[in-house]
Design a binder for these strands. Structure first.
Lengths: 114, 114
DNA sequence: AGTAGATATTGACAACTATCGATATTCTAA
DNA sequence: TTAGAATATCGATAGTTGTCAATATCTACT
């Protein structure tokens, strides 16, 4: 356990202290990890960057396939993951689906990194 | 492409505008995604939470195995991933390895979420 | 109704990852 | 130098994930 008497970074012979409990609960860790998993793919990050920077605040899904350079099912799959993570919102209008960023969600996640 | 003339959110028959280029480059997306991948595991998040909240600013690896409840090789593996992502720093002192958080790295990542 | 276009779902496959037991490496102390 | 302890690496395995082709679903228009 915790090496004690680490004065001036000297090496002590005593090791390993009492186990404190973990600040982040298992449940919270699972939830947070889920969001980071949604952010852990370069294609999704690029999708997010397009959606977040849209001048009109929203982007049609049809405008995402070509620039991203992946198949339509793949883009649809990634958008679903971003949506389920709460990072984007969507609205169906006619045949098209419009995506918008959820900045509160992003800042909430960002704040968990201190 | 982009449906035009979306007055009052009406559905237009014109779709899909010109492809703008993507704000986030492929290279930047890859790098960012790598950090989020490091953050996408609950065990690593809990390790980070322990290390970040250490009163002395550092934690001995030997103090992480028992609370986390995983095998020593597994904890070592996760610590390596956190280290390689730049999220923690480490220093070997004698037989022990001491880990500390890298808050600048965390805020740098956090700021990429706006 | 019937057609055409946009998006979602399914199924399959390759690549990656978390995990552990066993083992190797590194360091201290006797 | 030998023993013992802390950490890292290796090898194997089960589970997850990104990708696409094929297909289904939904909507608008004729």
């Amino acid at each position: 356990m915790t090496p004690k008497n680490q004065k001036a970074k000297a090496v002590s012979k005593v090791c390993c202290g009492t186990a404190r409990d973990i600040p982040l609960s298992e449940r919270d860790a699972d939830e947070l990890a889920a969001v980071f998993t949604a952010l852990s793919d370069p294609v999704r990050l690029r999708l997010l960057s397009i959606i977040s920077s849209a001048p009109e605040g929203e982007v049609c899904a049809c405008d995402l396939v070509t620039p991203i350079g992946k198949s339509q099912p793949t883009v649809s799959h990634h958008l679903k993951i971003l949506f389920e993570a709460g990072l984007v919102d969507r609205e169906k209008r006619g045949v098209w689906v419009w995506y918008r960023a959820v900045p509160e969600r992003m800042s909430a996640v960002a704040s968990r990194l201190r």
